[in-house]
Amino acid sequence: MSDATTSGRLAHHFESLEQQHESALLGMWAFLAQEVMFFGGLFTCYVVYRNLYHDAFVEGSHHLDVFLGTVNTAVLIGSSLTIALGVRSAQLGRPRATAGFIGATIALALVFFGIKSVEYWAKYEHGLIPGLAWHPEPGASPQLGIFFGLYFVMTGMHALHMLIGLGLMVVVGWRALRGRYGPDNFIGVEVLGLYWHFVDLVWIFLFPLLYLLGRHAH
């Protein structure tokens, strides 16, 4: 452990930076496996009820704003790009660029939240939030509530993951500014990037399932 410690970034219980790096990476992958199962439970519910109540789900999709959804998808994919550039800057040892790209990712995430709030607010005004403001038009499918229940749980859980990601980005961005990462030690940024890509990926599944599927039917 002699030379590696010189960077001062090696935790006491690791032998080398490579080992530390490998652990963190593996840990994050294991955590993401957990996330897949977490959202998997929700996707199972979605598939079951979509099969049972096809019409209600098609009807539900028509209440969602595809335009805003598409913009949000683009925003989120953009944020995946900026975080990837952030990881690259960290690898190249450019702390200011790293912090800058993380800042850009934060900004894009905030845009996403802004648009999402507009959508949520519209649902509130139309009375499409089960339990809080639920007065769908007469003649609506009786199972529309299940669609919107799943919509809010799925997008809500996704938003919660983004919030956690935001918190992490503030911390990692700050540490990047203080020069805590370098070419031999950028695992913090890399792991954050992995997490953010996963959050992005969840949305890539949510968007077509909730907004697009079945829209061609009517």
Partner: peptide, 30 residues
Amino acid sequence: VLGTPVIAITIVLVAIERLFGVGIFDPAKG
């Protein structure tokens, strides 16, 4: 790692069901 998250989300759905009456597990609502 692979099992626990499933019960986590399931139990959240039960709580949400109680709070908001969404109907995911309630036969009266489909």
